[in-house]
Design a protein around this nucleic acid. Structure first.
Length: 622
RNA sequence: GGGCAUGUGGCGUAACUUGGAUAGCGCAUCGGGCUUCGGACCCGAUGGUUGCGGGUUCAAAUCCCGUCAUGCCCGCCA
């Protein structure tokens, strides 16, 4: 774990300004909030003089000038100057560079950049794709966001558990099983793709009047534990999930545990959760009227009802229907009680995949198996489509009513916008779930990346394939992740497969250039070798490297991987400018070469961390 | 009816939570740069009343009020 060098400087600068202001008789309070990186006026800047001007009755420019002239000796601040009411400061370049390069070389890949997580356990749920079709580009956004959020939490020192909720019950599953049973031919090809077609066909037929009774009879048998149909449904779903996880593995995405909805229903979890709600008066059992026989939450009985529940069509939410079956929200409440350890763990777990690409097994809830230590977390992050915002706030409301506002606040929803298809495009005609699959996208991207490598590198076929896959993944992942999560995406090939400019491959390319320089260096560079003088180009790169702490912490705490993608792009750009303008190996003295190589080394470490937090591989050759 | 999200040059977007100096970037367009450490590159130019109208402030893309447009959600579906 390391500390942001930039915040060290800002702390020092704020203290110096507060001290100088106090010695002049100004009342400032904390000035830290008025500090920031400066754009073009020195390195850091402070706007406190504007605020002081109110109480002091002097012009901001005069105050700033007086304060700037009073700034004492600082370890990292070179000098201060006033300009237009701002106090601008320049940093001691060599000392700051030394601090930055030392910090980045001490930060551990994957887990040890920031300490804000402090070992707290967090469970992250995604992508929860229905187990009856392949992962398409909409789910892919979810998957990539979830991976990035997980990586960022690890990088901030959280204890991360990655979980996937499999909805193997409900109408879609019934239709899929119905289609499967009617289908005469054997499955062929990748199972999720095959089942997706069968499901789509069935879905077109199922609404027909003639099948209603048949479907509802099938639904009963599927939900009834122990029937042949329930076993068939589970085995179809499991086969589909395995195929989806092949896709996920190709995208470098791995989970810790699968939770099956049928296991939530099959165990005692749900009953105990409902009992707790009834005992504490959060829910009640209706014995008359419209909701006779149901367990409900009555919004009219809740004080200080949040605004989103104000003008509801119905002021009642049903948790358990009069036939005894629970609604989705009831299951989710029970499940979140499990996540936070409010109820004993009723699940048994077995290995679903013995060993994933990350070396760890994937566990799954199952009828038989072992007890494990999943859940019991401090925070639960749910990566779900913005459409589910209402049930998610309902969830938080229920925990507040239970007197567990801490859990309510600990449930965090990353509500990302939908992925649409370009109107009139080939993609749109084929339909989002049938043809625009994550598998197809990767295949297309791989071919394009392969073509781009061409004669550029003398690599063996196998190596060329590996590199083109990594480049393809980086193009796709960067495109999805650089977008603010709440924005809608209109998917197109052009959009998803950018290899130039502000893109994943551009970042990878800069990393590859940097590692080549380090390889070609006559002597291994010393990590913290510092230049005597830093040019603007060199120091610009130092400052961008220093920005990784703020980027990671912000990206993590706000659940916005886009912050990190933007940072990676900026960092790559800073390196590129530096690289174009500054000789490193050629035409340099030993001192210049060594200190510039140290800078290149620092860049490479920061770039690799940034890319890996986005799930992108840092390539040494491409 | 209520709630949420989005609206920034031709297109795609960043900055909005925490107000701060010249609204940053990519694509496209135009003009430059390879006998030079990897051209998936760099430098420059063109292009903006930040949907609209008010308000607060020394200062508003950012905060507040109103308004328009688009999309989503408010079920004994999940």
């Amino acid at each position: 774990m390391t500390v942001s060098p930039f915040s060290v400087v800002l702390d020092e600068a704020a203290e110096a300004i507060e001290g100088a202001a106090a010695s002049l008789g100004y009342k400032t309070g904390s000035v830290r909030g008025a500090m920031g990186a400066s754009k073009g006026f020195g390195d850091i800047s402070c706007s406190a003089a504007f605020r002081i001007s109110k109480s002091a009755g002097e012009r901001p420019a005069d105050i700033a000038a007086k304060i700037a002239s009073r700034i004492g000796k600082c370890s990292l601040i070179e000098e201060a100057a006033a300009e237009g009411g701002y106090i601008n400061m320049s940093v001691k370049r060599a000392d700051f560079a030394s601090l930055v390069l030392r910090s980045i070389s001490e930060a551990a890949y994957g887990t040890g950049l920031s300490g804000i997580g402090n070992g707290k356990k967090v469970i992250i749920e995604y992508p929860s794709a229905n187990p009856m079709h392949p992962i398409h580009v909409g789910h892919l956004r979810n998957l990539l966001l979830g991976d990035a959020v997980s990586n960022l939490h690890r990088l901030c020192g959280y204890d991360v558990e990655v979980e996937d909720y499999i909805d193997d019950l409900g109408l879609q599953m019934v239709i899929a099983v119905w289609g499967y049973m009617r289908h005469k031919e054997k499955p062929e090809g990748k199972f999720d793709h095959w089942l997706g077609m069968v499901y789509a066909d069935a879905n077109r037929m199922a609404p027909g009047e003639g099948f209603r009774d048949e479907l509802s009879a099938l639904a009963k048998r599927i939900e009834n534990n122990g029937t042949e149909e329930s076993r068939l449904a589970r085995s179809i779903a499991e086969r589909c999930v395995r195929a989806q996880y092949e896709t996920a593995a190709n995208y470098g995405s791995y989970h810790d545990v699968l939770i099956w909805e049928s296991d939530i229903l099959g165990g005692k979890l749900l009953g105990r959760a409902m009992d707790m709600l009834l005992e504490r008066g959060v829910a009640r059992r209706e014995t008359e009227g419209k909701y006779n026989g149901c367990t409900i939450i009555d919004f009219n009985s809740i004080k200080d009802l949040p605004s989103e529940f104000g003008g509801l069509k119905e002021s009642v939410k049903v948790l358990v229907r009069n036939d005894g079956t629970p609604t989705y929200v009831a299951k989710d409440i029970a499940f979140h009680m499990w996540k936070f350890g409010m109820l004993d763990d009723p699940f048994r777990y077995s290995k679903f995949i013995e060993r994933q690409g990350n070396g760890k097994p994937l566990y799954s809830t199952s009828a038989s198996g072992e007890r494990m230590g999943f859940g019991n977390v401090y925070e639960a992050i749910n990566i779900i489509d913005v459409k589910q915002s209402y049930p998610q706030s309902l969830l938080r409301l229920v925990f507040r009513q239970l007197g567990r506002g801490d859990i309510g606040n600990g449930i965090r929803h990353l509500a990302y916008g939908r992925v649409e298809l370009e109107e009139g495009s080939l993609a749109a005609r084929k339909g989002i779930s049938e043809e625009n699959t994550a598998d197809g996208l990767l295949e297309e991207a791989r071919e394009r990346a392969y073509g781009l490598i061409g004669e550029r590198l003398k690599l063996g076929e196998e190596e060329k394939g590996r590199v083109s896959e990594a480049v393809a993944l980086s193009a796709i992942k960067f495109a999805f992740l650089k977008m603010s999560p709440e924005k809608w995406i209109t998917f197109s090939w052009k959009w998803a497969l950018s290899f130039e400019g502000d893109s994943g491959p551009y970042c990878q390319y800069m990393y590859a250039r940097a590692t080549r320089l380090l390889e070609d260096a006559p002597m291994p560079p010393k990590q913290d070798k510092v230049c005597k003088v830093y040019s603007d180009g060199e120091f610009g790169l130092v400052k961008e490297i220093a920005g990784i702490w703020e980027a990671v912490e912000k990206s993590c705490s706000e659940l916005r991987p886009s912050v990190m993608a933007e940072y990676a792009g900026r960092l790559a750009y800073a390196f590129s400018s530096f690289y174009e303008s500054t000789p490193i190996l050629k035409d340099t003295s030993d001192d210049e070469r060594n200190c510039r190589l140290a800078l290149v080394g620092g860049f490479a470490r920061a770039m690799k961390m940034a890319l890996e937090s986005l799930g992108i591989e840092a390539l040494e050759r491409m």
